[in-house]
């Protein structure tokens, strides 16, 4: 199960281009990370070029992790371009407590 609070010293560092132009590469990178590391912790550059395709890939990775009992998370809470893209895409409004914990590292009282 994902546990974003467990910060790893060396996460999977993603490239600065996280848009549709690079989506296949990023997908492959995520798949490789799941094959080679555990837990998989993503390090997203603050100034990364991000669009919806990346958000979908991370959501797909969350489903994959959940299904396979793997730990998966972000090394640090969403900020910068990642946070603004989450807002623009309407992800923030729709977030469940677990989503908030994953993306924003905010644990809420149930």
């Amino acid at each position: 199960m994902s546990d974003p609070q467990t910060i790893q010293p060396h996460g999977t560092v993603l490239p600065p281009s996280l848009s549709i132009r690079n989506a296949t590469t990023v997908r492959d990178l995520l798949q490789a990370a799941f094959e080679s590391t555990d837990p998989v912790m993503l390090s997203v550059p603050d100034d990364a070029d991000i669009d919806l395709s990346f958000l979908q890939l991370v959501e797909a990775a969350r489903r994959h992790a959940e299904l396979n009992g793997r730990a998966f998370g972000l090394q640090k809470p969403a900020m910068g371009n990642l946070l603004s893209t989450l807002e623009r895409a309407g992800f923030i409004t729709a977030m469940t407590p677990r989503d908030r914990e994953f993306w924003l590292h905010r644990k809420e009282q149930q």
Binding site: I20, A23, S53, E59, A60, R63, L67
Partner: peptide
């Protein structure tokens, strides 16, 4: 996001 598939099923584009 209910239609987003798993990582091995997703078409990135």
């Amino acid at each position: 996001l209910s239609k987003v598939p798993g990582l091995n099923q997703i078409e990135p584009a």
